[in-house]
Design a protein around this nucleic acid. Structure first.
Length: 918
RNA sequence: GGGCGAUUAGCUCAGUCGGUAGAGCGCUACACUCACAUUGUAGAGGUCACUGGUUCGAGUCCAGUAUCGCCCACCA
């Protein structure tokens, strides 16, 4: 066959070579160019904690589709790569490694620990990049950034200082979520609520004077050691006389008051609430309101503190058991029942989160949230699918101040310096040393670099804050810090605001919303116009795929087995817009099979083009084109329109399905089959039809692979390269220039040219398809093979006007239905011993002497009759309905009449054919 | 407790103007000489979760119910 192409598409022999080809030729690169319009996407930076999951595959495939599509449309498309240092996550990974080695971060010390994390980061980062390359991601690698590289660190410090000077960053002693395992503060977003089977204990606090006492119900008995009051609802008649009395806190033997507060729910438990200001957010608020002391009975590591008296040193859970046992011994435990409730856990280590009072840095969110709400309301930022807008508002409207300090080592060190010679007047004197050096109780100076002199006392001794910033404090700057901010770079000017953000909805609040806030605050502009939120990739059991669950197949292994294109295409195909996708291994076969189909279609085309002198010279005047040519060009045009429109609306799977459907079931199943006789006929008089077919098929394949390229970049480039010279000539004719010929990456995205729309050709071809299918069906039903014996068919038309049209399809019909003789005419008689296919406006009689089984034929006709009768019944009902005739649109009624007439006719003809057999 | 999503063929899911329900896989039968068995041809298979409403007409719009899932949330 002249061409040395394997019968199976082999991704392994193609992908690495083509990726190198693209990268070496700079096809991924974008630089500011005032003559061209930019299109920008910043990658949601993967965490450097490990390898990528199939969730990342979906995320990055969608981005690559957008970028490649826009690039083909002529945009100067930039896809900005980079990774995130993922503070707490990465630190835990490395700490676990150290633990396995029998050491710890404390043993290593801060500096050596951080060095170690950098090593791990480098290793993981390399793996991640390799995975992204394998996937075909057209990222501009020259621009790769990392949230802790020098430039981004500068941006982080700049932002901290600016917000501090504006009063939007402050330090306060407040109740925050605390992870005892990591020993750090967490924001709300880093806490996951899980349902826990706990208990509810009823504990009696005896009155100091007199008999009896107050019984409280609690889920956390161990915190009673830190109780400083019992609260009841002021309107609760049961406790009217109790308010103001004193009770004895059991085990601690401390006197505490009974206070009144509306917060207390009369219905829950006993209606009396123990108040532990240091260990419960509500109690904290009530404690502050009533001026209660807040003894901390639980230490940062989750054990009981000195304030817990006899219980000190016990783990908080062991302490719970001890407290319960001791109360029981004292006869103060009145009741215990199981109680299911939601409890916060650390999103990285699953440890039960402890509400904890500590001195932390915060960002005031309200002022930032207001503007961020407005840009969504006025649609400057749009959410896809739009329902996420509501979720966004909910987050924006309820956002509490953001605790940004973390007691970790891996991250951006907080640029706060404490004077050792004078104290911070804002701090409670109890919370800092009484005299110099003041440590972190010293007067704070916020500055990107170490200050020289204390503005309060002129002192020169400083210590820097030990803590680092929350990971998201660098992530929220990502859309502009990656482009060079705070410098006013050309990149920033040209590529910002970016165009599309593609991410999963689970980080809508803590990442997307914050980026919008940051963009507006620091650049006075939105960071991106469209936010596309895709579903989550789940394992077959419905669970989310994640690194921590370890239930994501290795994308590299999947690509080794099926190819990158197959994985990309399949994962897009199974992901309906905004819906979660259930991954399974055999779904990837869809993409692999499709790639193979396209490959073989291309082989067929290439093989048969070999002898074509120059298809590019073929002018496709309508007169030169056969029915099938006009049909396939019309179908192609519709596919281009559908796919383009779907992409505009972020309906990736719809675009993918449209292309799949066209390539497989129209191009391959019909067009390629139909033109085989034409391209193989070497007779001199057959030259023009042959050239026309070759020209059209080249055009169609060319457009098909362009459409498919964003979804399956490798195979389409490989085919493009094989089509090579022809593409160059075609491109030159179309004014596409030499660049386009060099790589499909820069070939223009197809235009839906309405000149090629041909409804008449589509209708006629559909008729041909129906006839062919009907004859094939009869063949099968009569037990005949696909193409042998060749059959004799009589096509009897109802309308003389249709004769010429059908006559023109004679060759098509004979070839596709494997006929040896076809008679076409008006109202032809049915030959004896033939089977009949009743079709709109015609009947096809298949001569079956010696083969026909009358019972089979009767059954076949009766089945059809039954089906038609069912439809007719529905149609009759409609037309008998006066309201329908009066109120339905005219076209619909008209259509119904036609339908009805056709059905009646069909039934009549089926009955006639059937009668003949009786 | 609040919000959101889902419920369509045996399985996994499409179905963005309301007008006789679609795909892939699986299944059945047949076919490896001319691109592809990772294939082709033909076929079977559905009360569109349920109830009510709007409408000439509802898988599609509205209300409610049930089941599953997700997100948010400081009732001890």
């Amino acid at each position: 066959m002249g061409l040395d192409l394997p019968t199976r598409y082999d991704p392994a022999s193609v992908e690495k070579r083509l990726y190198r080809f693209w990268e070496e030729n700079g096809y991924f690169q974008a630089d500011p160019d005032p003559k061209r319009k930019p299109y920008t996407i910043v990658i949601p930076p993967p965490n450097v904690t490990g390898v990528l999951t199939l969730g990342h595959v979906l995320n990055n495939t969608l981005q690559d589709i957008l970028v490649r599509w826009r690039r083909m449309q002529g945009f100067n498309a930039l896809w900005q790569p980079g990774t995130d240092h993922a503070g707490i996550a990465t630190q835990s990974v490395v700490e676990r490694m150290l633990d396995a080695e029998g050491t710890s971060r404390q043993a290593l010390g801060r500096e050596r620990f951080v060095e170690r994390v950098w090593q791990v980061k480098e290793k993981h980062n390399a793996v991640i990049n390799e995975q992204l390359r394998r996937l075909g991601s057209s990222l501009d690698w020259r621009r790769e950034r990392f949230t802790m590289d020098e430039g981004l660190s500068r941006a982080v410090l700049e932002v901290f200082v600016r917000l501090y000077n504006k009063g939007l960053v402050y330090r306060d002693k407040f109740m925050i979520n605390w992870c005892p395992f990591h020993g750090t503060a967490l924001s709300n977003d880093e806490v996951e609520h899980q349902t826990v089977q706990g208990g509810l204990w009823w504990i009696r606090y005896p009155f100091k004077e007199g008999q009896g006492g107050v019984t409280v119900a609690t889920t956390r008995p161990e915190t009673m050691l830190g109780d400083t009051a019992v609260a009841v609802n002021p309107d609760d008649p049961r406790y009217k006389d109790v308010i103001g009395r004193t009770v004895i806190l059991p085990l601690m033997n401390r006197e505490i008051p009974v206070i009144a507060d509306e917060y207390v729910d009369k219905e829950f438990g006993t209606g009396a609430l123990k108040i532990t200001p240091a260990h419960d957010p509500n109690d904290f608020r009530i404690g502050r309101k009533h001026g209660l002391a807040a003894p901390c009975v639980i230490a940062p590591d989750g054990t009981m503190s000195e304030e817990a008296g006899a219980y000190r040193g016990l783990d908080r859970f062991a302490c719970r058991e001890r407290v319960v046992a001791d109360l029981r011994k004292l006869g103060l435990l009145e009741k215990h029942e199981p109680h299911e409730h939601e409890v916060g856990h650390c999103y990285r280590c699953d440890t039960l989160v402890e509400p904890y009072i500590s001195l932390q840095w915060f960002v005031r969110m309200k002022p930032l949230a207001e503007r961020a709400r407005k840009v969504a309301e006025d649609k400057s930022v749009r959410f896809w699918p739009p329902r996420w807008e509501t979720m966004y508002y909910h987050w924006i409207d309820t956002v509490p101040d953001w605790p940004i300090s973390r007691q970790l080592w891996w991250g951006h060190r907080i640029p706060a310096w404490y004077c050792q010679d004078c104290p911070d007047p804002k701090l409670d004197p109890a919370d800092r040393p009484a005299e110099p050096p003041y440590g972190i109780g010293g007067y704070p100076v916020v500055s990107a670099t170490q200050p020289e002199k204390c503005p309060q006392c002129g002192g020169t001794r400083f210590v820097q804050d030990e803590d680092v910033l929350d990971t998201w404090f660098s992530s929220w700057l990502w859309p502009f810090s990656t482009l060079g901010w705070p410098d006013e770079t050309a990149d920033l000017k040209y590529f910002y605001p970016t165009d599309t953000l593609v991410t999963a909805p689970d980080i809508l609040g803590f990442w997307v919303a914050r980026m919008i806030m940051a963009g507006l605050e620091f650049l006075d502009d939105i960071p991106f116009r469209d936010v596309y939120l895709h579903g989550i990739v789940r394992a077959e059991d419905g669970r989310k795929m994640s690194k921590s669950l370890g239930n994501s197949p290795d994308p590299i292994a999947v690509m080794d087995e099926f190819g990158a294109d197959a994985l990309r295409f399949s994962i897009v195909l199974i992901t309906a817009s905004g819906q979660d996708a259930y991954y399974s291994h055999d779904k990837v076969a869809i993409g692999r099979n499709f790639a193979n189909k396209l490959w073989n279609a291309s082989r067929l085309v290439l093989t048969n083009l070999a002898e074509s002198p120059d298809v590019a010279d073929m002018a496709y005047g309508a007169g030169d084109l056969a029915l099938e040519d006009r049909w396939v060009l019309s179908r192609l045009t519709r596919t281009i329109a559908t796919a383009s429109q779907a992409l505009e609306g972020f309906n990736f799977n719809e675009a993918a399905m449209a292309i799949y459907e066209f390539v497989w079931h129209e191009l391959c199943d019909w067009y390629l089959e139909v033109i085989k006789p034409r391209v193989r006929n070497a007779a001199p008089e057959a030259t023009a039809p042959r050239f026309a077919a070759q020209g059209v098929v080249t055009h169609v394949l060319d457009n098909a692979i362009r459409l498919l390229h964003p979804f399956a970049p490798f195979i389409t480039e490989e085919v493009w390269q094989h089509l090579g010279a022809r593409m160059a000539r075609r491109g030159a004719l179309a004014g596409e220039g030499a660049d386009a010929a060099a790589s499909i990456m820069v070939a223009p995205w197809p235009q839906a040219d309405e000149r090629w729309l041909d409804p008449a050709a589509e209708a006629t071809f559909a008729q041909v398809q129906e006839i062919v299918r009907a004859i094939r069906n009869i063949r099968k039903k009569m037990g005949l093979a696909d193409r042998t014996p060749r059959l004799r068919v009589t096509l009897s038309l109802a309308d003389p006007a249709a004769e010429a049209g059908m006559e023109a399809c004679r060759g098509l019909l004979c070839d596709q239905a494997a006929l040896e003789h076809l008679e076409i005419g008006v109202s032809l008689p049915k030959p004896p011993a033939s089977a009949a296919a009743v079709l709109p406006g015609m009947e096809a009689y298949v001569a079956l002497e010696g083969v026909i089984d009358l019972d089979t034929e009767r059954k076949r006709l009766r089945d059809q009759l039954a089906r038609a009768a069912k439809f007719l019944e529905g149609s009759e009902r409609k037309l008998a309905n006066v309201a329908f005739l009066e109120k339905a649109p005219k076209e619909v009624v008209e259509k119904e009449y036609q339908q009805n007439a056709r059905l009646r006719e069909d039934i009549q003809r089926l009955e006639a054919n059937l009668a003949e057999l009786e």
